[in-house]
Simulated scan of single mutants.
Amino acid sequence: MKPFVAKFVWFDGKIVKDEDAKVPVMTHAIHYGTSVFEGLRGYWNSKNLYIFRLDDHIKRFRNSGKVYSISLRFTDKEITNAIMDLCKKNNVKESCYIRPFYFVGRHGINLHVTENTPTHAVVVMFPFGELFNKNGIKTGISSWRRISDMSTPPLAKMGGNYLNSILATQESKRNGYDEAILLDHLGNISEAPGENIFIIRNGKLLTPPPSSSALEGITKDSVIEIAKDLGYQTIEREIPRTEIYFADEVFLTGTAAEITPVISIDGKKIGDGKIGKITGKIRTIYSDITIGKNKKYSKWITAVY
């Protein structure tokens, strides 16, 4: 079966053809990165399409814009309905990636963005499978440091923030790695360019806190709850760079990456160089949840059809 083609997008309250969703070249976001976005996954289980943690994504979606006084001129319910309606209009019956975003429109070159500055809101979607090799990836510590609250708020999912991620990704690819790991301004582990990070030592999960410039990830939060139900403790604390080399297991989490094992860092093998036992357990449960096979976490999925 050929992947579906998303012929329609949601643009400022209406579903329109993709080619009809246009913005002028003087759009502020093109010049300054004044855009806010979210990434959601839709999972098809042969009977229905389930969107993972829809309400939580929409909440973060609005909060990110508040940091920069960029207004989302639609209610949470309107954005939720837009996503659901667009899935139906595009007749999505396979797993997909859904991206809602809003951005500053015509505002000249004025940097004084306020709640009254004109904005546009959009939802797009496209087929999406695995981002990384599920058997594990090789990573390297980037020479680029993760942005921090001292300069650009890392907890807001802003388009401009990801220039930092692009630099780290380019460097990691040049060095022969699948993905980068960034340090915070103090030299502690922060996150990957688009993913949170967990390390496992002595049966405990460790993950960097927001003070280490780690995004408050929704997949990260899901993993913490799954791990707790499995009887594993998660500790959110600063992680020195050297400590990650001592890890028994390491994995990344994110909407696109889902739960991806890390098998080496800077050429140093993690564990036995394969997906770890705890990582495997968590990933299996997570995968079952997303397609509606685990009723315990049914609160996390929203059926489209």
Rank of each mutant, 00 (worst) to 15 (best):
1 M>F: 05
3 P>L: 12
4 F>Q: 13
12 D>F: 00
18 D>P: 00
26 M>V: 10
28 H>W: 00
29 A>L: 01
29 A>Y: 01
30 I>P: 01
31 H>A: 14
41 R>F: 01
48 N>E: 15
50 Y>F: 15
50 Y>A: 12
51 I>C: 04
52 F>D: 07
53 R>A: 10
58 I>W: 00
59 K>T: 05
61 F>D: 11
62 R>I: 08
64 S>E: 10
70 I>K: 09
71 S>W: 00
73 R>Q: 05
76 D>H: 07
85 D>A: 11
89 K>R: 12
90 N>G: 09
94 E>Y: 02
101 F>S: 15
101 F>I: 14
102 Y>N: 14
104 V>R: 06
104 V>Q: 06
105 G>L: 06
108 G>R: 02
109 I>M: 15
112 H>M: 08
112 H>G: 08
113 V>D: 03
114 T>W: 03
115 E>M: 08
119 T>I: 10
120 H>M: 11
121 A>I: 02
131 L>E: 07
131 L>I: 03
131 L>T: 08
135 N>F: 03
135 N>V: 06
136 G>P: 11
139 T>V: 14
141 I>E: 07
142 S>R: 05
143 S>I: 13
145 R>N: 12
146 R>G: 11
146 R>N: 10
147 I>D: 14
148 S>I: 02
162 Y>P: 13
162 Y>M: 12
163 L>W: 13
166 I>Y: 06
167 L>F: 13
172 S>D: 02
174 R>W: 00
175 N>M: 14
176 G>D: 03
180 A>V: 07
183 L>W: 02
183 L>A: 04
187 G>P: 00
189 I>N: 03
190 S>P: 01
190 S>F: 00
200 I>G: 07
200 I>P: 07
201 R>M: 12
204 K>V: 10
205 L>M: 08
206 L>N: 04
209 P>N: 03
210 P>I: 12
212 S>K: 04
217 G>M: 01
220 K>H: 11
221 D>Y: 01
222 S>N: 08
223 V>G: 08
225 E>N: 05
226 I>A: 09
226 I>D: 07
229 D>Y: 02
233 Q>I: 08
233 Q>W: 00
248 D>G: 03
249 E>V: 01
249 E>W: 00
250 V>H: 11
250 V>G: 14
254 G>S: 14
255 T>V: 09
255 T>P: 09
255 T>N: 09
257 A>W: 01
262 V>M: 04
262 V>C: 07
263 I>A: 04
266 D>E: 09
266 D>R: 11
268 K>Q: 11
270 I>G: 05
270 I>W: 00
271 G>L: 00
276 G>E: 00
279 T>W: 03
282 I>A: 09
282 I>H: 04
289 I>E: 05
294 N>L: 05
296 K>P: 07
297 Y>P: 12
298 S>N: 14
302 T>D: 02
303 A>K: 08
304 V>K: 06
